[in-house]
Amino acid sequence: MTAIISVSNLSKTYASGFKALKSIDLEIRRGEIFALLGPNGAGKTTLISIICGLVNPSSGTVLADGHDISRDYRAARSAIGLVPQELTTDAFETVWSTVSFSRGLFGKARNPAHIEQVLRDLSLWDKRDTEIRRLSGGMKRRVLIAKALSHEPRILFLDEPTAGVDVELRQDMWRMVRKLREDGVTIILTTHYIEEAEEMADRVGVISKGEIILVEEKSELMRKLGRKQLTLALQEQLSAIPEALAAFDLSLAANGSELIYSYDTKAERTGITALLQALAEAGIRFRDLQTSQSSLEDIFVSLVRSRS
């Protein structure tokens, strides 16, 4: 079994009548880092909340680590750690006591050594006796992460972990996430930032308006990203691509006044020199040229647009 979470046919209609999730199917693989990408209101938090038991699904099933999240909720939830999007912490408890509390809540026997390790990893050890209300926002987020890790979950949900977090903490966090994955923890994170997904994830899922519209290996996405376009503005319009240039991946645009060549930047030879030579031999002259790269952002935006 490679899927650690399988979501099938999951729908959620809120009491207001709003349909936040529309028949979602999704499999998260054991040990991967999965980035769930989507605009505001897409349903990321709703999906996570259902898997973690905070929101009741309207229909559909979810298995976490092989356990049905409602019938076998104890086993399912024991495996899951959640860092919520909002900074919701106690105020008067100390860092140490709130993190220890979480471990107990999840049914684990006391283990001060583990709590210490978690606090050290998150640079919270010096703050262990500080009341949470005296911490900065970024530190509170670390506390939430520490609480989620206190009970040694096999699955970790990070709902927008880097919102309102400075560069340093972000890097700390990614270091920690990578380390967790090395230990075999499956990590699902949501983000608005494509660079984040690009940097961290093994696979990327895009959600929009309550539907998963794309799930792909990041490397596959990057391959698509690796493609570049060379646009040549021609001096004279062409009605068709000349026979002599058939070997190149070319297309005409702007009524034949533009010639577009697609190539792979990662290939050993991009073929640009050969193309330019062939163009000269065919007597095709151009006024201007320009190259462009489709980013994950472009793919994302066009995916979201095409659905609306």
Binding site: R77, L82, F106, G107
Partner: peptide, 10 residues
């Protein structure tokens, strides 16, 4: 909002 933790706990 801290009740999230109780709701997500086993």
């Amino acid at each position: 909002g801290t009740i999230y933790e109780l709701l997500s706990a086993p």
